[in-house]
Write a protein that binds this DNA or RNA. Structure first.
Lengths: 234, 234
DNA sequence: CGCGAGCTTGACGTTGTTCAACTAGAGTGG
DNA sequence: CCACTCTAGTTGAACAACGTCAAGCTCGCG
């Protein structure tokens, strides 16, 4: 966990989506209790939000930014399980399953995150099942993307997986045809489950065929339907 | 969902693990309410418990038997996400996340399952956050195995993945060095994410090297440490 | 200017899939 | 009882996909 030197004015949290949703479910007393145990942090690109193997004491509410879920096998064998953008509840798997974190969560670019102490928050959950259910549903969304990635990985060839990833990033993360991808080629490879050379080769071909246009870390999808076809065939 | 012609005496459920655990959390009134909405079904090998794309109206409590989570891409491109044995709560992902089932759940061998109507049960959960949390933790266990499979698939070669699967089946599913595997070679391949010929070749080699002994569907692990080494090297 | 990290490219070898041929067992019908 | 067919399992060989390697490139930074 990052040091808390950058704690900001707590009133900021009253603007965040999580706070607004929570206020629909909780009593004024609980809201007040929550306010006392919530604080905002800012993370920069590459900073670790949760560390694999650590024991989480917090739930993280991603209010702004993009994060990756990365599994560290050993020095040279990493894996990106998923990439998600705000707003999301992070630490769901860690929050309810009382073991060490299965994977790390790392900032991609600047991230605004609200931290809630789990011990305090757990009490509120125990007393308010309806609220707990709402949070479960949100936390569950995270797993859907992981499972869909898994399926893509198991069933498709490299071209199909890369097409899937580009479509996913465009539609669900950056929400734009064109985006500035802060990941290295190696990291994209860790997401696609292939070598970095493979990513480079495939990007080159897609460039030649006018399906995408890459310019350093900027990436634009020119022909979405062709990308979808590659995904299907893969 | 299977037809309910085989509903058994409801008192049977009072013996099941789920019922016993629940009684620690719920009031007598809620327990009574639960009893009214719970019934036991028996599934045979290959029968579908939850169908991919369907909307679940039930939570399934696997009291006896083994099930697979299978994703059906198309006729010739299936995938087994996980295999788990009783006792487990099935339908967790479906229970809290109100969409169509992401994957099917299918019986491997005979299964005893208690079904609970979700609408009735949801009310109890909303009123009892502590109980909801307990159930959620159990449901989360399911995802851990899926994620570990994902990691194995992404990081290891075929030999390593097959070794992983054999160790997993032995330690977490059958809880025995020797087991009667009801899966076809094709299904094992769908679990390992490779071709059935690959499974057959690898099994042959492992047989030759006295690491395992296969006799039709019976499988015995002779040299666990060697299998663990193959898993690490993979 | 030199250095290092990340990127790019093509060649090469390994891994894994596909294909085809064969075997064994189980179910079917004459 | 014997074809027959169908399914699952097995084997090896050919081929394609993919990872590894090596070399050169670009860019930013000290």
């Amino acid at each position: 966990m990052k040091d808390q030197s950058e704690i900001k004015d707590l009133t900021l949290c009253s603007q965040c989506l999580f706070y607004k949703q929570s206020s629909l479910f909780l009593s004024e007393k609980d809201i007040h209790h929550l306010e006392k145990n919530i604080y905002q942090l800012k993370f920069k690109h590459g900073e670790t939000i949760f560390k694999q193997g650590d024991k989480s004491r917090h739930i993280a509410l991603l209010n702004h930014g993009i994060v990756k879920f990365n599994f560290e096998e050993n020095k040279e064998r990493n894996l990106i399980l998923s990439i998600v953008s705000a707003p999301k509840i992070l630490g769901g798997a860690n929050m309810f399953y009382r073991q060490r974190n299965l994977f790390s969560i790392t900032a991609i670019g600047d991230c605004d995150i609200c931290m809630i102490d789990m011990n305090e928050f757990g009490e509120i959950l125990k007393q308010n099942g309806k609220y707990a259910l709402m949070l479960f549903e949100r936390a569950m969304e995270m797993f859907e993307t992981s499972i869909l990635n898994y399926i893509s990985l198991a069933n498709k060839n490299v071209n199909g997986r890369i097409a899937d990833i580009l479509l996913y990033l465009s539609e669900h993360v950056y929400k734009n045809q064109s985006f500035h991808l802060l990941l290295t080629r190696k990291e994209i490879a860790e997401f696609a489950g292939c070598s970095k050379e493979n990513i480079i080769h495939t990007f080159s071909h897609l460039n030649d065929d006018n399906v995408i246009r890459t310019d350093g870390k900027n990436l634009t999808i020119l022909d979405k339907s062709k990308l979808q076809m590659i995904s299907r065939l893969g």
